[in-house]
Design a protein around this nucleic acid. Sequence first.
DNA 1: CGCGGGTTTGATGATGCTCAAGCCCGGTGG
DNA 2: CCACCGGGCTTGAGCATCATCAAACCCGCG
Lengths: 191, 191
Amino acid sequence: MPEILKAHIQKLIEIDEEELSSVLSYFHPLEVKKKQNLLTEDQTCQFNYFVANGCLRMFFINRKDQEQTVQFAIENWWLSDYTSFSTQKPAGFYIQAVEASSLLTISLLKQEELLKQHPVMERYFRLIHQRVHAASQFRIKMRYDLSREDLYHDFIKRHPGFVQRIPQYLLASYLGFSAEYLSEIRSKKRS
Amino acid sequence: MPEILKAHIQKLIEIDEEELSSVLSYFHPLEVKKKQNLLTEDQTCQFNYFVANGCLRMFFINRKDQEQTVQFAIENWWLSDYTSFSTQKPAGFYIQAVEASSLLTISLLKQEELLKQHPVMERYFRLIHQRVHAASQFRIKMRYDLSREDLYHDFIKRHPGFVQRIPQYLLASYLGFSAEYLSEIRSKKRS
DNA sequence: CGCGGGTTTGATGATGCTCAAGCCCGGTGG
DNA sequence: CCACCGGGCTTGAGCATCATCAAACCCGCG
C-alpha cells in the first residue's frame, strides 16, 4: 500500500524519487480487520496512522457510558490522538477499524527521525495539519450554524456514498444525536 | 512586539539568533483598536495574525443573522481563516479585535518566501498546526460530552481570568448558547 | 443626568433525548 | 431448509434542555 502514501506525498510537496523511497521506508504497513482496535483509552497512542484503504473511526466513552464517535478517517487521511501521540501520555480516545483496512503506521520516534533526516517532510506534515485546521474551522462553523437535522442533510450531500459504508448508528453518533432521532429524520424525508 | 514572537519561536524550535532576526523581518507589526475589523466575510483573508498582546475573535453571521463567535485568540496565538488564507478565496469568517491589540502579520506570499528561505520555519508552523489539531480534537470531545451548562463551568475553570476580559454575551456565543441562558446558569451557581 | 448597551428575569415553546416496545432481516445451528 | 436468534432500525409517548421574546433593570460613558 505504500504507493497510495507515495502518491499523496507527491501531490503535496516536491520531492525526488530517491529521497521519497527512503522516506517511505520509515513507515510500516498494517492490515486490520473490521472492529479491530488500534488504540484504547488510557493507553498511550504509539502511532500516527495513514489510511491507504478502508475506514477508521475515533471515539470515546461518554458520561452516559456510550461510544461517542468524533472522527472518521478514510482513504488518504491521517489519524491519531495527537495529544497522546505527541506527549506520549495516556489517550482520551479509542481508534477502531470500521472496515477491514490497510494502514501505514509510524511511531513518534521514527517520525522524529524521519523529520530530522528529511526536513522536507516537515512541510508535508505542516500542510496536512494546516488542512485539518482549516477543515476543523469549517466543521465548527457548521456545527454552530445548522440544526442536527440539517447537519445530516449536509453530511450526506458532502459525502455521497460514504453513508452506505457505515451503519446508521455510527453516523448518528458522529453527528451528535441519537439513532432514534436519525431514524425520524430519514422517515421525514420520504414523506 | 517582535520579542514576544521571538520568544515563542525559540520555545518551539532551535534556531540561532542571526537566522531568527532575519525571520522576524518578514512580519509586520499592526496595532488595532477595540472592535476594529481585520477580516470580513467574503473578503479574501490576506494575513496570518500572531497576537503579541490583546485579544481577537473570529465569528460569522449565522442563519438567524446574529454574530456567532467560533474562536478567541489571545497572547501567543495565531489566528486566520486558513481556508481563505491558503486558497486566497473569499472568507467565511470575520476577524475582529475584542480588545486593543498588538499583532504581527504576514501575508501568504511573504510566508511562502519565509518558508523557502528558512525551512526551519516549516517545523515551527507544523508544530503550531499540530497543537491546534490536538486542541481541536479535545474541544470537539468536550462539546460532545458536556451539556451547555457544564461547558461553561469547564471553560471558566480552564481559563480563569479570561472570563473577566470579555463581555458575557461573547462567551455565551462562543459556548453556543444564548446570553439569557448564560445568565440563568450564573444565577443558579450563586444560590 | 440621561442614554444605550449589556445583563437579568420569567413565560412559552421547539428541538431532540430517553425509554420501551416492536419490527425487520441476515446469519447460525439444528 | 427451516427456526430462531440478535443486532440494528423504527415508532411513539413523555420529558429535559435550551431558545425565543418581551420587559425591566443596571450602570458606565458621553
